[in-house]
Structures are given as structure tokens and as C-alpha cells.
Amino acid sequence: MMFFEVLKLLFKKPFTNKFPVKYAPKNTLGLIEKVQKGEVKINPPVDTPPGFRGKLEYDIDECVGCGLCAQVCPSHAIELVKDKNWVIMHCKDGAKLAAPLKIRIYVSRCIFCAQCVDVCPRKCLKMSDEFLLANEDKLAEDLIIPGP
């Protein structure tokens, strides 16, 4: 019987984690602004574990543009692009050595499988613990890595 159980629960603290605030705000953007100004304190989210798979981090300087990540990406979120700043380094034996390609990651397509992190030979991709990625615009600036 649930009769006694529900009465017990009535005096128990709710199980819900009240993130970010207890009730839905009237104006979400307003709330974010207030939080940034420090006027409102938000309840913290549940901590992410050490191996969490969140938004990708990309070290563009380390990348050699091998394109393996784009090959294994299941959702085709990684695009190979020409590096704007690339320079051909002339080696002593006359060979050209340079990385003419870099990648661009569309986070709105990413499914967070971390397969690109595993395959990267230069270890220049990393999963951060950032997970608040909702946005109205799927091509927003912070959803494309690397940013402009």
C-alpha cells in the first residue's frame, strides 16, 4: 500500500535536483543575464564524472589534418577545410612539409561518441565536461569548432 509511503514522502525533501532554478523562469535569456551579473544564484547541476563525454575541444596547432576523425565520425559532423594560415615549409631534401588541412566540427551534429578522440594520432581532440549546448541556431558561433 502506498498510503503510508506517500505520507512519508510528503515530509521528505524532493528528489529532484533543482537545476538551474526551482521554477521555470519567465524569461530564460533574462535569467542568464542576471546570473552573469551575479544577481541570481543558480543551483549547481549534478557533477559530471571524470570520463564525461561533453563538447569537443580541438587543439588546432597540434592537428596535422590527417582526416581520420572525419572518416570515423558516424554523424558526419567533422568537415575537412583548407587551413587559411598554412605555409609550406621547405625541408632540406626539397620535400614540402605542411598541413594544408584542418577540421571544422559542427557540434549540433555531434553525437558525443568520442570516436574521433580515440582515432586521433596527434591527440589534439578532447572531450570537455561542457554540456549546456542548447541553442536556437544550429550554426551558432559557439557550436562550430574552431570558432572564427
Binding site: 506517500v6 505520507l7 514522502l9 510528503l10 521528505k12 524532493p14 528528489f15 529532484t16 533543482k18 526551482k22 521554477y23
Partner: peptide, 13 residues
Amino acid sequence: KLAAHMQWRVGPP
């Protein structure tokens, strides 16, 4: 509100 608390959750305002 009371029903929500009896169900172990916060409930609406």
C-alpha cells in the same frame, strides 16, 4: 503542489 511532494518531486508553483 502537495501531490508533487508526495510523489517525491518539486511540482509547479
